[in-house]
């Protein structure tokens, strides 16, 4: 971001990478897929790089409001300094937090999730999509809680997936009734309480009951949980867990 501004350029959009997308080896692939899409359509975008800090989501859901607001204020100070207008995030948790919880602290931006941006680009004709290796394959989409129920975005990821000429199967628990992957609410960072089974096992079992070629996700945390779930059932050979952005980038050789 700083580099762009010093060159006298103003980015159209800020790509908020998020902690997973920056540090987690699996999620970095999603980050790169999003970058490939943005580069392909020629959008002028920037990232905050080392000036980005956690959105504060896991702290807020865990009840640490102080830490959340400290994170939010430092991010808002940086972004307002750069006069950021529009943000695309690679993670529904960052998306939700920045879109809904930053405004009353002074951070007002137009925030979209990457699946919404991809849908917009396709609808505007800027991104032409072919099915490629996914053509005719069976896909189930797992709704991320913080994109679906939390923000009522159900159609964007589905419309994008359907552009790949695939057979999109719906789990019984989908859209508003979608079942959590087990990561949200800061559960990603702690052991589960005592019970019969793990939430991700329950959810992956449901997804695998459709015998999909791909379990499509839109969240790096869901990605981790569903990938672990597929491993739990020894189905890595048959079923891949992929982010919608990865599917688009791969199918179109971006």
């Amino acid at each position: 971001m700083a580099e762009m501004l010093s060159n006298g350029e103003t980015p159209e959009i800020l790509f908020w990478v998020g902690c997973s997308g920056s540090f987690d080896d699996r999620a970095k692939k999603i980050t790169k897929a999003i970058v490939r899409i943005l580069n392909h359509v020629g959008i002028k975008f920037a990232v905050l790089g080392t000036e980005e800090s956690c959105s504060g989501d896991p702290a807020k859901r865990a009840g640490n409001e102080f830490l959340f607001q400290m994170q939010a204020m430092s991010n808002i100070t940086v972004m307002n300094g750069y006069e950021v207008k529009k943000i695309v995030t690679g993670c529904p948790h960052c998306y939700n937090t920045i879109k809904n919880e930053y405004p009353s602290l002074g951070g007002n931006y137009e925030v979209v999730h990457h699946t919404q941006l991809v849908q917009e680009l396709i609808n505007q004709g800027k991104l032409k999509v072919q099915g490629g290796e996914f053509k005719g394959k069976k896909i189930v989409f797992h709704d991320p809680c913080y994109l679906g129920r939390a923000n009522e975005v159900y159609e964007a990821p589905r419309e994008v997936i359907q552009k790949l000429d695939v057979e999109l199967a719906e789990m019984k628990r989908s859209r508003a009734n979608g079942l959590c992957c087990g990561a949200g609410g800061a559960q990603m960072f702690k052991e589960a309480e005592k019970g019969n089974r793990e939430v991700n096992t329950e959810r992956t079992e449901e997804a695998l009951s459709h015998n999909p070629d791909v379990i499509a996700v839109g969240c790096p945390f869901c990605n981790t949980m569903m990938t672990d779930g597929v491993k739990h059932f020894n189905k890595e050979q048959q079923t891949k867990v992929l982010d919608v952005a990865e599917m688009i980038a791969t199918a179109n050789d971006l």
């Binding site: 540090f23 790089g49 080392t50 800090s53 956690c54 800061a186 960072f189 702690k190």
Partner: peptide, 20 residues
Amino acid sequence: MFTNMENNGAPWQFSPSDRL
């Protein structure tokens, strides 16, 4: 996780300078 976020700006123990 809180301590990591306070010190590194991420819920994991990664250095903020490695973010890019």
